[in-house]
Amino acid sequence: NITNLCPFDEVFNATRFASVYAWNRKRISNCVADYSVLYNFAPFFAFKCYGVSPTKLNDLCFTNVYADSFVIRGNEVSQIAPGQTGNIADYNYKLPDDFTGCVIAWNSNKLDSKVGGNYNYLYRLFRKSNLKPFERDISTEIYQAGNKPCNGVAGFNCYFPLRSYGFRPTYGVGHQPYRVVVLSFELLHAPATVCGPKKST
């Protein structure tokens, strides 16, 4: 009989979020998941679920829940969905086509923008091939755009693969920082350890 609540607040209220190319993952297990707390949290810009209804989450049990978190621009949030393409979905964070879970995003301009620009948040701009679902690539190898080998030196046709967002408070909404948490639900042939409040007695 599990009684402790799942530590969703640790994920959602973290002081610093990860850059999207180096997205953070927390495994959540052996706890009671009260999703209504999240669902009623006012400032969400997006709360979209795939393969599961957000209002039914509290009735369900899962083997594991993974909480992935990172920061992207407002106009990139739409790429955090199954079957998407674009710089983020291709080179930074890719969801599987059969994704079961929820994508939760909110504007973090007050936290993550600075006058003069916040350059701490990076994304991958160049990559030889697209990421596989949930693949994480933190390499900083110089990207070779031409035929000539770069030998690890940036220059003509040789690019550092990461780019900084440089968030400023005055940017338009599409270019403002958004914090994103992706909850993915794993249902294995194993005992369920993460259940909603109704199922955990």
Results as ranks from 00 to 15, higher is better:
Y39A: 13
I104Y: 06
N147A: 15
F44C: 08
L57I: 15
A42M: 06
F47I: 01
K110H: 05
N120T: 00
G51H: 02
E10S: 13
G196H: 02
P43Q: 07
S200D: 14
L5N: 14
L188N: 08
K198Y: 05
Q144N: 08
A190R: 14
I138D: 15
P149I: 14
G117Q: 00
P161S: 09
I2M: 08
A192K: 10
D98R: 02
G117V: 00
E141I: 09
N40R: 06
A145N: 12
F156D: 02
K199M: 04
I2E: 12
N151L: 10
P191M: 05
K128Q: 07
K110E: 12
T193K: 11
Y121N: 00
R136Q: 07
R16C: 10
K110T: 02
F44K: 13
N75K: 01
A42L: 08
G152N: 11
S19H: 00
N64R: 08
A192L: 11
E135Q: 03
V52L: 01
A22G: 07
N87V: 12
I138F: 02
S29P: 15
A192E: 10
T201V: 14
G83Y: 13
N24D: 14
S69T: 01
S36D: 09
T193L: 08
P169D: 00
A14N: 06
V115K: 00
F44Y: 09
Y119A: 14
H175Y: 06
T55C: 11
K48R: 01
I142K: 04
T3M: 13
Y123M: 05
F156Q: 03
N64K: 02
T140N: 00
Q144M: 06
A190Y: 01
R16Y: 12
F156M: 14
N107P: 12
L187V: 02
I88V: 01
P43T: 13
Y66M: 00
R168W: 02
N151T: 15
V37D: 05
S200A: 01
N130F: 10
F156L: 12
T140I: 04
S36R: 02
T15S: 11
K198F: 14
G152A: 01
N147F: 15
L188F: 03
R163H: 03
L162V: 01
F44S: 05
Y39N: 09
A145V: 12
N58H: 10
G155P: 14
F44A: 13
A46Q: 15
P169H: 00
N4G: 02
L122S: 14
T170R: 00
N30A: 09
T15E: 07
K132V: 14
N64G: 15
T55K: 06
D98Q: 04
I142F: 08
P7E: 02
K148S: 03
K128I: 10
N151S: 03
P197A: 08
F44L: 11
T201E: 06
S184T: 12
N151H: 10
N75V: 03
L60R: 03
E141M: 05
P191R: 09
G74E: 01
G152L: 06
S29T: 10
D90T: 14
Y121M: 06
L122F: 12
A145T: 14
N109K: 04
N151Y: 10
A145R: 11
N1P: 01
K128H: 02
G152Q: 12
V32Y: 07
L162I: 01
P177A: 04
G74R: 05
A42Y: 06
N40A: 10
A14K: 11
P149N: 12
N147H: 09
G152E: 14
S184F: 05
K148I: 14
A145L: 07
F156I: 08
G155H: 15
P191C: 12
Q84R: 02
V153S: 11
L125N: 14
Y119R: 10
A190C: 11
W106I: 02
E10L: 06
N75E: 06
